[in-house]
Design a protein around this nucleic acid. Structure first.
Lengths: 226, 226
DNA sequence: CGCGCGCTTGACTAACTTCAAAGATGGTGG
DNA sequence: CCACCATCTTTGAAGTTAGTCAAGCGCGCG
């Protein structure tokens, strides 16, 4: 059961069901401020007071956690339409940074919550989205706990394809290091695994960030749909 | 940020904030049927229609996912007070099985939802709980993606200690294999790592299921609080 | 054109897994 | 109450996957 790994507001081309009905966000959208971000620019840091939510308009954002000695984990990549900061308590539980040039909308959490709390159907939608996000987290835990490097990369590619709603080609906005930190691998292993999949005719790499799927069945077999 | 890995209803000795206020579940509890379970008995299987929620009264339940070739992942252990099935869509996303002799309360999902949906404050509580669960899933992904075997075991022990609200001693209801499948390790590695921690004076093992913490600071250092 | 950064590739290493066997534990029936 | 048996755990030794260290490549940008 593949699932989007982030909360989402409506986007016609997105193949994910259960997103907000368009008018749910109508009044909420008016609260938002458009913010452009440079490559690597942080939206917020872990443990900062959580004063805003964000929605990605274009580009990509990653969520990171650092261990004491510098090991990094990338929890999620947020793409156009994805909602960020949703699961924050009073402080953010991860750092969020733009992967590429990105545009987001920033919402005051106070205002957003004030409106959302008054509208039971919005709260219900948020709950449904949280549950979808939990389900995606579940899949990612299976991946991190039990899948091989090849299976992780296959799952990652298929997940992006589904989230993009495109049939067979994706542009990766993130680096090999980002992918490795998301999948519990090193940059080198990610690189070698892409090379292996290319050699096996499963994917084509027009450039290191431009992936075309050549053999979707093989990719799905590797991803081990559970 | 240690967090309980499962949704919870109130339990006085539990050190986890944000659980339901006692009366929130008052009317919901009346919907429940008490069900005793034998060791290894399933509550439900992955992909079954999700017709019930459950709450653990005593004992322990695990959630499992199987890959095609038999590799197993244990997503969570649910202990007394924990709520199960919450994040299900129309079908369950994992199999739930009793780890030991266990007693649960079973709720009709239809009735539960009918009441919960009518009570905005209950929906808000459920949303908060879902967010806590997401936060716990986040920590688990960091563990699975980036921690060593020793760090995983240390984190696991501390998590159980916090969830039990006990200071320095825990009874593990689950097998070494269960622990391994939860932490992305093999049974043998789990066993060797417990032995290592004992040898280092960090824990004491009165039996293989009875763990006493001897050096909490060392354990916390290993767990790499993030 | 050349510089820098990210990607690739190779050789070696380490951590964890696998395979195997012996040692504990606990439940059951005599 | 004790002995037996199945099951779980521990421990050892060898194997494998992915990590580490290091060098070279190539693309994009100034």
């Amino acid at each position: 059961m593949p699932a989007a790994t982030a909360l989402q507001s409506p986007r016609p081309r997105r193949a994910v069901p259960g997103a907000f009905a368009p008018d749910d966000f109508a009044m909420l959208d008016r609260l938002g401020t458009v913010v452009p971000l440079r490559r690597e620019q942080p939206l917020f840091h872990e443990a900062d007071p959580a004063e805003h939510y964000f929605k990605v308009i274009s580009g990509a954002v990653r969520s990171c956690n650092l261990l004491a000695d510098g090991r990094r984990h990338v929890g999620d990549f947020f793409l156009a339409g994805d909602f960020i900061g949703f699961n924050a308590a009073s402080t953010y539980i991860f750092t969020a940074e733009a992967v590429t040039e990105t545009v987001v909308v920033r919402y005051s959490r106070r205002h957003f919550d004030a409106i959302a709390w008054r509208e039971p159907h919005i709260v219900r939608h948020l709950l449904e989205l949280a549950c979808k996000s939990l389900s995606a987290a579940h899949s990612q835990m299976v991946l991190l706990g039990r899948k091989t490097a090849e299976e992780r990369i296959a799952s990652f590619i298929l997940d992006l394809v589904v989230r993009n709603g495109v049939d067979d080609r994706i542009m990766l906005p993130m680096s090999r290091t980002d992918i490795g930190d998301h999948l519990g691998l090193t940059m080198e292993t990610v690189s070698r695994t892409f090379a292996q999949l290319r050699k096996d005719g499963v994917i084509e790499l027009k450039s290191s960030h431009d992936v075309t799927i050549r053999d979707r069945a093989a990719l799905e077999a590797l991803a081990q749909a559970d």
